[in-house]
């Protein structure tokens, strides 16, 4: 099994990558980190730079096509790999790359999908004695259809008290370059998301995408709201011996 750590986690949130490795290895997976990996190209694709993205798709496919399964701690990156990579290759007139991208995409999984669907595990043996509100994130929810899988995993975590996030299925307002291009609208959405998070009274706001968490966490930090943002992988990696 290959870990695609994502460029964002690699550069800014390495703890999320380490937690992903910890969970998978605890469950007996042999985790390989192909160092040739860089970025899935999602930001390029969603901002319209499709020609520039071809090289990134090529790089991703070449790096990962020999692995049986590819796991990433990000719903939106997996969404891009599964649904957009072949389109980018087709557009560039490279049918062969498109076919390879489709094959790789079918074996790429977001962490909760991999744990629940591929490994068949809902209790990962974690312990996390905190109150948690879970933001399901749009791409996990709608592009991948992960449904209740993250919640199922969280419900089995010892000591964790899950508090339902009102309007959870509403977008947080990140949207990649949208957060900068339409900063006012993005912040208006973030404001409502933070109000919903704060209304739960939870200590922690969790999600399975570091990009959304960077956005929500950046806002909560600016408010000094006292609520932490934590990636799903970090919660699933926590144990009684080493609860963070």
């Amino acid at each position: 099994m290959a870990l695609f750590v994502t460029c964002l986690v690699d550069t800014l949130f390495p703890d999320v990558g380490r937690a992903t490795v910890a969970v998978l290895e605890r469950l007996g997976c042999e985790v390989v980190f192909p160092v040739e990996q860089t970025c899935c190209g999602q930001a390029h694709i969603n901002t319209g730079y499709h020609r520039d993205a071809v090289g990134l798709v090529q790089k991703f496919v070449t790096t990962f096509e020999d692995f049986e399964a590819i796991v990433a701690p990000s719903g939106s990156c997996i969404g891009s790999i599964r649904h957009q990579h072949s389109m980018i290759a087709e557009k560039a007139g490279d049918g062969e790359l498109a076919a390879r991208a489709r094959a790789v995409g079918a074996r790429a999984f977001e962490l909760s999908e991999y744990l629940v669907d591929q490994l068949g595990i809902t209790d990962v043996g974690a312990a996390y004695p905190h109150t948690v509100a879970y933001h399901p994130t749009c791409h996990s929810l709608r592009a991948l259809g992960v449904g209740a899988k993250p919640l199922t995993l969280l419900r089995s975590v010892r000591g964790l008290q899950l508090i339902e996030l009102p309007n959870g299925d509403q977008c947080c307002g990140f949207g990649g370059t949208f957060a900068v291009k339409s900063a006012d609208t993005s912040v208006a959405m973030l404001t409502d998301k933070m109000a919903d998070v704060l209304s739960t009274g939870a200590e922690v706001c969790a999600a399975s995408d570091s990009s959304c968490l960077m956005h929500i966490g950046g806002g909560l930090s600016r408010l000094q709201a006292g609520v932490r943002t934590v990636h799903l992988a970090e919660i699933l990696a926590a144990t009684e011996d080493a609860a963070p």
């Binding site: 969603n46 319209g48 749009c138 791409h139 929810l141 709608r142 592009a143 299925d169 977008c171 307002g173 990140f174 949207g175 990649g176 370059t177 949208f178 291009k181 339409s182 609208t185 993005s186 959405m189």
Partner: peptide
Amino acid sequence: LPYASTLCGA
């Protein structure tokens, strides 16, 4: 206009 969306998919 094509950028007036977070691509949330709703």
